[in-house]
């Protein structure tokens, strides 16, 4: 999977990394059980500080998406049961973004099309 980082974006590099890895899993480009490169190798290949990659890996681990294996890297976890708690967290993330789109002038239909367009790029499971 190819990772693209916008070097001069307002979004910090570690967040871009996290998002792209999650999107990669959603699209099926990387699958549960696959391993991600070691922090050092990843940072060297991208030419970024090791802390940046480390931060992203820890964020992903906290979300339960990867499992960090000391010295060898990180492994993508298999799908867990969706808990009520996680659902609430996701809803809290969705709500302000959708509200913002609506307030800025997108119609409900447009928003629905946008979301289903994104969902179409993701792998069915």
């Amino acid at each position: 999977m190819i990772i693209h980082i916008e070097a001069e974006s307002d979004i910090p590099i570690y967040t871009q990394l996290t998002n792209q890895i999650i999107e990669g899993i959603a699209r099926g480009e990387i699958a549960p059980g696959d391993s991600l490169p070691s922090v050092r190798a990843f940072a060297a290949d991208l030419g970024v500080n090791m802390h940046t990659v480390n931060k992203s890996y820890h964020e992903l681990e906290k979300k339960g998406i990867i499992k960090i294996v000391p010295k060898s890297g990180a492994i993508i976890s298999s799908i867990e049961q969706m808990t009520e708690e996680k659902k609430q967290l996701i809803e809290a993330g969705f709500k302000p973004v959708i509200a913002e789109a609506f307030v800025l002038g997108m119609s409900k239909k447009e928003i629905e099309e946008l979301v289903s367009g994104m969902l179409n790029q993701m792998k069915e499971r």
């Binding site: 999977m1 190819i2 990772i3 693209h4 070097a7 001069e8 990387i30 190798a41 991208l46």
Partner: peptide
């Protein structure tokens, strides 16, 4: 031109 950095997870 937007400056980009890129890598391939399978390059290693």
């Amino acid at each position: 031109l937007k400056p980009m950095k890129v890598t391939d997870l399978s390059i290693r």
